[in-house]
Amino acid sequence: MTALERRVNMAAVFIPFAVTAVAVALLWGGDWLGWSDVAVFVLMYLVSGLGVTVGFHRMLTHRAFQTHAFTRYAFAYMGMLSVQGPVIDWVADHRKHHAHTDTEGDPHSPHVGEDGSAMGTLKGLWHAHTAWLWRTHGQARARKYAKDLVEDRGMRILNRKFPLIVGASLAIPAVLGGLLSWSLMGALTGLIWGGFVRIFLQHHVTWSVNSVCHFFGKRRFDVEDHSTNVFWLAIPSFGESWHHNHHAFPRSAAHGLKWYEIDPSQMVIGLMKKLGLAWDVVVITPERQAQKLIGAEKPAKKAKPAEEEKVAEPVA
């Protein structure tokens, strides 16, 4: 990572935090939060959040379903509105995370290199949640871990346009806020709440899957990593916090595998399937889930089924 990339990543972390702190302080006086701001915040959170969970993660990283090229590009654009990095870098980092989960080489494990002491635990959680962004972020070799996207001309173009998409991520809520309120004040508050505050909250919800969901929570499947399910993050993360389920069955389109495990991203994928926008959706049967429960009797060793395969691409 170059010094410039490190500074840019640090700015992407701390500027939304600073604006959010100011926005919260402004709530104590004046008209700094109105109905138009709430509407813009919710719209931008849904669009960019589902761009990450349905697009970056389940569709592009794990190929949990197939869709048209236009839909792939649309979700890639939506995901980059979250300001979590260019699409190819995001996918490469996440595939590397699955290839080396909680072992040396994992870009954002809270467990690697720590001694188990209280201070070591805090350092590990800090690294997994935020500090990895100026240490190991974007360092996974794209040709190895995201070869399919590197060879896709449309994805390469979108990847290069990331700085412009970051600008759009701030400009769109400002324009929407101005139009809904028909005022410059509405444009400013739209920028604050639908832009910076939304980016801040979305960042920390996503990063909590890296940190919290590898440290605190519940487990029921026989997997070798430290992934956990965290119920209270399910709705803000659009189902990504059923992270232990996901590590047990990486290619599953659904991360919530029980009726009570709310998974909004799977609901969107189900709607896309009904509309003909998604097909070949990977489903894990109850029987397959039962075979992988902790303490379940293990069948005779055989080749891994497709839903368990690692998704890292071979070296070109």
Score class of each variant (00 low, 15 high):
93 D>P: 07
94 H>K: 12
75 F>S: 08
304 K>G: 02
244 H>W: 03
301 K>E: 11
112 V>P: 05
49 G>Y: 01
228 T>Q: 13
36 S>Y: 06
15 I>C: 04
290 A>E: 10
185 M>A: 14
298 K>G: 01
207 W>D: 03
301 K>G: 00
178 G>H: 09
88 I>F: 09
52 V>Y: 01
266 Q>D: 15
138 G>Q: 04
235 I>E: 08
99 A>T: 09
127 H>D: 09
179 L>D: 06
139 Q>M: 13
46 L>Q: 10
141 R>E: 11
113 G>K: 11
225 D>F: 04
18 A>I: 12
174 A>I: 02
88 I>S: 05
145 Y>S: 09
165 I>Q: 01
74 A>W: 12
105 G>T: 05
165 I>L: 13
255 H>A: 06
163 P>A: 10
270 G>R: 15
177 G>N: 04
155 M>F: 15
131 A>S: 14
233 L>S: 05
37 D>T: 12
298 K>F: 06
134 W>N: 00
169 S>W: 09
105 G>H: 07
247 H>K: 07
155 M>H: 11
27 L>C: 04
195 G>Y: 05
37 D>V: 12
262 I>A: 08
97 H>P: 02
286 P>A: 08
96 K>T: 03
159 N>W: 15
275 L>D: 01
257 L>C: 02
41 F>V: 03
222 D>N: 14
139 Q>W: 05
12 A>Q: 04
144 K>L: 12
274 K>V: 05
262 I>Y: 15
251 R>M: 05
145 Y>C: 05
119 M>S: 13
53 T>Q: 08
3 A>E: 14
127 H>W: 12
117 S>Q: 06
27 L>P: 00
222 D>G: 14
140 A>M: 07
309 E>W: 15
314 P>W: 03
169 S>L: 05
225 D>C: 03
172 I>T: 03
154 G>D: 12
182 W>C: 03
113 G>Q: 13
97 H>N: 07
97 H>S: 05
230 V>S: 07
206 T>E: 05
13 V>N: 10
18 A>V: 10
46 L>S: 09
231 F>C: 04
210 N>F: 00
221 F>S: 01
310 K>C: 13
179 L>T: 11
307 E>H: 14
64 A>R: 08
29 G>F: 10
287 E>F: 13
193 W>F: 06
262 I>S: 04
87 V>R: 01
299 P>T: 09
50 L>Y: 04
255 H>E: 06
227 S>F: 03
5 E>M: 13
19 V>I: 13
154 G>K: 09
190 G>H: 06
165 I>C: 07
304 K>R: 15
59 M>C: 10
95 R>I: 07
272 M>K: 09
199 I>F: 12
127 H>E: 07
51 G>T: 01
128 A>Q: 08
63 R>E: 08
271 L>V: 14
274 K>G: 05
292 K>M: 15
281 V>S: 05
